[in-house]
C-alpha cells in the first residue's frame, strides 16, 4: 500500500506546490467531509495538506470594501465576529446550521464550497450575498464568484494545484438584509432537503431595489435564480411579488428523487422557504435602515 503523507505548509506557494505535486493530494482544513470520505473509502488521498498553519487562513478581516474570511476559519468562529454577524447574518446562520457544534468547530465555508455538495448549507447564502473566492494556484491568484466553484456534485472548477485561500463578502449595502433557511426532517444534524438563501436591498420607501435568491439541493449545484430576484425588484414585497418570486423559484428547481426527499417535495419546499426567507431578510433590511 502506498503510504499517505501529511503536510503542514506555511505559505500559499507551498500549498500550491504540494497540491500540484500529486493528483491525489487533498486540502485539509476542517476535515469534516474529507475524513468521512477517507473512512468510507470514497476518497483515498496520496497526501493530506493541512492548510491551517498558513498565515491568514484562519480569521475574519474587515475593511471598507467588506470582509475577508480565511478559508480555514471554522463556522463557529464566524459567530464570534460581531461585525460579520451584523452585516451578513444569513451567511453566518447558514454556516452554523452545518452538522453539530462539534462539527462546526472544525467545518469551514470554503470546505463546504469545495466539497461541492449540491446541498451545502452555506453555499446558497454565499451566492446570494455575492461572495467571491480568492483562489491560489501554481500560476497565481484569481478571484472567482462563489457560484463558480462547484460545477457538479463533488466536482469543482479548481485547476490542479489550486485551492481556495479566502472568501470575500462585500460590505453590506444600506438597507440590505440576508437570510438562509433550509428544510430538514429533524431540527439539527441533517443535510438540507432544500435550502434557500436570499440577499436583498430596500430603498427608503421599502421598495426592493435588488434581490439575489439562491437555491440548494434542487440541482447538481446551488442555483442563483435571477428571475426570482427580478420578481421582487421594484415591488414592496407584496403577496403578488412574493408569489411571482416563488413561481420563478419552483420553475428553476430541477431536483431529483433521492433518499432525502422527492423532487416534487423539494420543488414545493423551495417556493415555501423562499417566501419565508425573503420575509426574514426584508425585516433585517428594514431594521438596518
Amino acid at each position: 500500500m502506498p503510504q499517505m503523507t501529511f503536510h503542514t505548509p506555511a505559505t500559499h506557494d507551498e500549498v500550491a506546490a504540494l497540491l500540484a505535486a500529486s493528483a491525489g493530494a487533498r486540502v485539509l482544513s476542517g476535515g469534516t467531509d474529507l475524513i468521512v470520505q477517507m473512512r468510507s473509502g470514497r476518497n483515498a488521498p496520496s497526501a493530506i495538506i493541512d492548510v491551517k498553519q498558513v498565515a491568514g487562513m484562519i480569521g475574519v478581516r474587515m475593511s471598507d470594501s467588506g470582509f475577508a474570511i480565511g478559508a480555514a476559519t471554522p463556522c463557529t468562529a464566524l459567530l464570534n465576529d460581531s461585525a460579520l454577524s451584523a452585516a451578513w447574518p444569513g451567511v453566518v446562520e447558514a454556516a452554523n446550521l452545518i452538522g453539530s457544534v462539534q462539527v462546526r468547530n472544525r467545518a469551514t465555508m470554503a470546505g463546504n464550497l469545495c466539497n461541492a455538495s449540491p446541498a451545502a448549507d452555506s453555499v446558497p447564502a454565499l451566492i446570494a450575498a455575492g461572495a467571491t473566492c480568492v483562489v491560489v494556484g501554481p500560476s497565481g491568484t484569481r478571484e472567482v464568484a462563489a457560484s463558480d466553484i462547484a460545477v457538479a456534485p463533488g466536482k469543482t472548477s479548481l485547476a490542479p494545484g489550486e485551492f481556495v485561500a479566502e472568501i470575500r463578502l462585500p460590505a453590506r449595502p444600506a438597507r440590505g438584509g440576508d437570510a438562509y433557511l433550509r428544510s430538514i426532517p429533524r431540527t439539527e444534524m441533517d443535510i438540507a432537503v432544500v435550502g434557500v438563501g436570499v440577499a436583498l436591498v430596500l430603498d427608503a420607501s421599502g421598495t426592493c431595489t435588488a434581490a439575489r435568491i439562491a437555491l440548494g439541493a434542487v440541482a447538481p449545484t446551488a442555483l442563483l435564480v435571477d428571475e426570482a430576484g427580478a420578481a421582487l425588484v421594484g415591488s414592496k414585497l407584496d403577496d403578488a411579488a412574493l408569489e411571482a418570486m416563488a413561481v420563478a423559484v419552483r420553475a428553476a428547481a430541477k431536483p431529483i428523487d433521492d433518499k432525502r426527499g422527492t423532487a416534487e417535495y423539494r420543488t414545493a419546499m423551495a417556493g415555501v422557504l423562499a417566501k419565508r426567507v425573503v420575509a426574514i431578510a426584508a425585516a433585517r433590511a428594514r431594521n438596518a435602515a
Binding site: P185, R186, T187, E188, M189, D190, I191, K259
Partner: peptide
C-alpha cells in the same frame, strides 16, 4: 416520525449511518 431503512433498486441500504438514518436528537 423519521426512522426507516431505505433501499435502492439493487436492494442495498441507502442510509446506513446516523446522518440519514434519523434517530431523534435532543432538539427534536
Amino acid at each position: 416520525l423519521n426512522e426507516a431503512y431505505v433501499f435502492d433498486a439493487e436492494g442495498r441500504m441507502e442510509n446506513p449511518g446516523f446522518l440519514d438514518y434519523r434517530m431523534p436528537v435532543a432538539s427534536d
